[in-house]
Simulated scan of single mutants.
Amino acid sequence: MADTPAKTSGARRERETEQKKRGLLGGILQFFREVVAELKKVVTPTRKELINYTLVVLAFVIVMMLLVTVLDFIFGRLAGFVFGGTPLWPLW
């Protein structure tokens, strides 16, 4: 089984021949048709959902900012202690 080459499925072969027939302009038009079809599937959130999503994102960003700030402070103090000989305490 491993020695036999993989065969292309019928649908894939048909799609490849359609792309060859279509040409460059036809391919571009098909792309835009598919984009419009996907955009029709998009559901806009309600006002309540939008506010909820916004608050979740802002809370996440604030938590991540605090985490990065604390880690930066800790690693900065450790680097100063190791390379500069500054004391770890007091923190200011």
Rank of each mutant, 00 (worst) to 15 (best):
Q30C: 03
F31A: 11
F32K: 01
F32S: 01
F32Q: 02
R33I: 12
R33A: 14
R33Q: 14
E34P: 00
E34Y: 01
V36I: 09
V36L: 02
V36F: 04
V36Q: 03
V36N: 01
A37D: 13
A37V: 07
A37H: 09
A37I: 06
E38F: 00
E38G: 01
L39N: 02
K40I: 05
K40R: 13
K40C: 10
K40D: 11
K41W: 01
K41G: 01
K41F: 00
K41L: 05
V42E: 02
V42M: 01
T44G: 06
T44D: 07
P45F: 03
P45M: 06
T46F: 05
T46H: 06
R47H: 05
K48R: 13
E49W: 05
E49F: 02
E49G: 03
E49D: 12
L50H: 14
L50I: 09
I51D: 13
N52V: 08
N52L: 12
Y53D: 09
Y53T: 03
T54P: 00
T54M: 04
L55C: 08
L55D: 10
L55N: 10
L55V: 06
V56E: 03
V57M: 00
V57R: 00
V57L: 00
L58V: 09
L58A: 07
L58G: 02
A59R: 04
A59V: 05
A59C: 02
A59M: 02
A59Y: 03
A59L: 04
F60G: 07
F60V: 06
F60D: 06
F60A: 07
V61A: 11
V61R: 10
I62P: 03
V63F: 09
V63M: 10
M64P: 08
M64G: 10
M65C: 15
L66P: 02
L66I: 13
V68Y: 12
V68E: 13
V68I: 15
T69C: 13
V70N: 08
L71I: 15
L71D: 13
L71R: 12
D72W: 12
D72H: 11
D72Y: 11
F73T: 15
F73E: 15
F73M: 15
I74E: 05
I74N: 03
I74W: 07
I74H: 05
F75H: 09
G76S: 15
G76T: 14
G76E: 10
R77M: 04
R77I: 07
L78W: 05
L78P: 00
L78R: 03
